[in-house]
């Protein structure tokens, strides 16, 4: 659906009480202004309104991670984010990771390690890994972090840590061991 031919009736700025609003998302560095039904999620906005189908719909309920994108620097399930509530947010999708023809190191590592099969979870896995590495650098602990680990240092990422931190991204093809290796390649 081309947003330019969407209904304009009732479309108002966020904060109004109609059922549609006009909002701006910063997608992969480009401002995109859309008029959307309030029910539209960030995922559907990307896939059905902006033609960015890299983020996948696997469950539509935050249970699989295929829709993972990076919102204002942190990974999130875009299927649970209402677009209207994210007016002004900076969103990075899998389409925004490569630098021109040069792949992001994680994309490269996923290829090198054959960390994918059907590929449907792959964009979510890669965006999740990008976000996860940022979290670890910022000292975020995980369930796998030792109870007595120092609370202020960046979290060192061994395989157990990566597995735990990546468990929000299901892969039915069973590429997990290769995914962990690919992330280790980049994390080390």
């Amino acid at each position: 659906m081309d947003p330019s031919r969407g209904r304009d009736d009732g479309a108002q700025q966020p904060g109004a009480t109609g059922d549609r609003s006009t909002l701006t998302l910063q997608i992969n560095g480009t401002e995109r202004t859309l008029t959307l039904d309030h029910r539209t999620t960030v995922l559907d906005a990307l896939r059905e309104h902006l033609g960015l189908t890299g983020a996948k719909k696997g469950c539509d309920h935050g249970q699989c991670g295929a829709c993972t994108v990076i919102v204002d620097g942190r990974r999130a399930n875009s299927c649970l984010l209402l677009a209207v509530a994210h007016d002004g947010a900076a969103i990075t999708t899998v389409e925004g990771l490569a630098d021109g023809e040069r792949l992001h190191p994680l994309q490269e590592a996923f290829l090198d390690r054959d960390a994918l099969q059907c590929g449907y979870c792959t964009p979510g896995q890669i965006c999740s890994a990008v976000g996860m590495l940022g979290e670890a650098a910022d000292g975020f602990p995980s369930h796998a972090t030792a109870r007595k680990a120092p609370a202020s240092a960046p979290a060192p990422l061994d395989a157990d840590e990566i597995r735990e931190r990546m468990s929000g991204n299901l892969c039915r093809c069973g590429a997990y061991p290769r995914i962990v290796e690919a992330i280790e390649d980049v994390a080390l």
Partner: peptide, 15 residues
């Protein structure tokens, strides 16, 4: 901290 980290996923906890 441990309770939070044992729940949901990294993505969900960020949101």
């Amino acid at each position: 901290s441990q309770a939070l980290l044992s729940g949901a996923s990294g993505q969900l906890r960020n949101t």
